[in-house]
Design a protein around this nucleic acid. Structure first.
Length: 298
DNA sequence: ATCCCGGTCT
DNA sequence: AGACCCGGAT
């Protein structure tokens, strides 16, 4: 698609204010203080210990030749999608050179599934196509949506064989045609497998945090974006492309440790003075308890 | 024991 | 809008 990103953002020109913006800014212009916010998050991330940073990664597929390696990336990413382990996608963005298929291993679920596939020689399209679907199901069992993923994996393998000579598609559009591959995974695979950054990988953390920061709005409005895709497009309009890769693991880790989906720890957040949503989150979503009034005020 | 999670597909 | 699915949090 057209590359209409005004990467030259007028970041240096505008005079800085100390006040917190309300998240409104002219379209295709950067939100105020975004660099300060990013810097603050980086600083917090350097001292926090987010799960995404832990070293529990498997290096399945690291010694494979390029074509097999790419398929392993696609298969592994497909498996980790829609699982909480998906948040660790950010991890192997950094390790893609040597460790193309890497998963956070907090529970051993994802890495176990990929490793079992690899040990059984089921990380390449030809073996997968021949393998029984139930076999794949059993090997990947603990991961979420395993039935659907086993089915999608076989379909993907078949398509890769028929249309791509056993390789994986190299364009965004072709990746999106694969069953079970949506925008998030497609952009991720494109980057990891082909080293091609065409878009920001927006998961729920990126989606949520960008909206809290007022970094993205629906086109022509001040309303929050409604979907990760809207967030991706809005974010890409102003965020310099140099940040497109790093923004995902940065915000994922931030979202895991501080800017959590519910009960964000605004009290310890170092950029709360720059965040229009700070301390504005509903304190207790479902409150049946009458105690626990003053326990979380750190 | 119940609720909640999360990309993708329908 | 709901189904898919597990494990984890509550």
């Amino acid at each position: 698609m057209p590359q209409t990103h005004p990467t030259r953002t007028g970041v240096v020109s505008t005079l800085k204010r100390e006040s917190v913006t309300l998240g409104s800014f002219a379209s295709s212009e950067s939100p105020e203080n975004w660099e300060k916010v990013l810097e603050g998050i980086r600083h917090m991330r350097s001292s926090e210990d987010a799960p995404v940073d832990s070293v529990g990664c498997e290096k399945a597929g690291s010694s494979l030749p390029p074509k097999e390696r790419r398929f392993a990336v696609l298969a592994g990413t497909l498996l980790s999608s829609q699982t909480k382990d998906h948040v660790t996608h950010g991890k192997f963005l950094f390790l893609s050179k040597n460790l193309p298929v890497c998963f956070h291993d907090s529970e051993g679920i994802m890495s176990g599934a990929v490793q079992r596939l690899l040990e059984n020689g089921l990380l390449d399209p030809y073996s997968i196509e021949k393998a029984d679907e139930d076999t794949i199901k059993n090997l990947i069992y603990p991961v979420g949506f395993y039935t659907r993923k086993a089915s999608n994996l076989k379909k993907v393998a078949n398509i890769c064989i028929l249309k791509y000579n056993g390789d994986i598609p190299s364009s965004l559009e072709q990746l999106l045609e694969l069953p079970g591959i949506g925008p998030k995974i497609a952009h991720l695979v494109l980057h990891i497998a082909w080293n091609d950054v065409q878009g920001i990988c927006v998961d729920t953390h990126v989606h949520r945090i960008c909206n809290r920061l007022g970094w993205v709005t629906r086109p022509g409005t001040n309303q929050k974006t409604k979907s990760p895709e809207e967030t991706r497009e809005a974010l890409q309009k102003w965020l310099p492309k140099e940040e497109w890769v790093s923004i995902n693991p940065l915000l994922v880790g931030f979202g895991q440790t501080i800017c959590a989906p519910l009960r964000p720890r605004c009290g310890v957040c170092q950029i709360n003075s720059l965040c229009p949503s700070a301390f504005k989150e509903a304190p207790r979503p479902s409150s049946k308890s009458k105690k626990s009034v003053r326990e979380k005020l750190e």
